[in-house]
Amino acid sequence: MYGKMMSIALACGMLASPAIAQQQAPAVAGDSAQVRISKNVAATTPYHLAPQEFGAYAQPYLLETGLVLTFEQRRHRYYTQIRNEAKVEIFPLAAGVFTSADGTLFVFRDGGDTIAVSHLERMPFAQQARVTPGRVYLASR
């Protein structure tokens, strides 16, 4: 399962990177299929969530660091927050995949029961939280 989450996180990380989104990304092998991301998909096909889809993710998640990430929806906008820090808007890329404007990537799996977070160091609270750059953090409900 960890390998599958890493493959999806890697593929989505490529999608979130502006430098790579402008060129054809290489295929990333998953457990049973390959994922191919092209600039046409990233640039012209925004992902729209179904009306109740975000409800599966609007829960607190305890990260390995002891931080608790919470997610919420307000109308058609989505946010994440830690403690009493300012909310950070996140944007849907695909089913269960979101990114912040700074490039933090959130990949939900198992119907929202688990999450992989990459580039957590880019979030505003990272300095106080002692987040290790380049590490993928895993959490579950």
Rank of each mutant, 00 (worst) to 15 (best):
Y2V: 11
G3D: 15
A9I: 10
C12D: 04
A16C: 14
S17T: 15
A19S: 10
Q22C: 08
Q24T: 11
A25V: 07
V28G: 00
G30F: 13
S32L: 12
S32R: 14
A33Q: 14
Q34S: 11
V35D: 00
K39F: 15
V41A: 11
A43T: 06
P46Q: 07
P46N: 05
Y47T: 07
H48R: 10
L49F: 15
E53Q: 02
A56Q: 06
Y57S: 07
Q59P: 04
L62K: 05
L62M: 08
E64N: 15
T65A: 10
L67V: 07
F71S: 13
E72N: 12
E72Y: 11
R74N: 07
H76G: 05
R77V: 04
Y78D: 04
Y78L: 10
Y79N: 02
Q81D: 03
I82W: 00
R83F: 04
R83N: 11
E85W: 14
A94G: 14
A95T: 11
A95L: 04
V97D: 04
F98N: 14
S100R: 00
A101W: 00
T104P: 01
L105Q: 06
F108V: 00
F108P: 03
R109W: 06
R109P: 02
R109V: 07
D110L: 02
T114P: 00
A116T: 14
V117A: 04
H119I: 04
H119W: 09
L120T: 08
E121I: 03
E121V: 02
F125I: 06
Q127P: 02
R130H: 10
G134P: 08
G134Q: 08
V136C: 11
Y137G: 05
L138V: 07
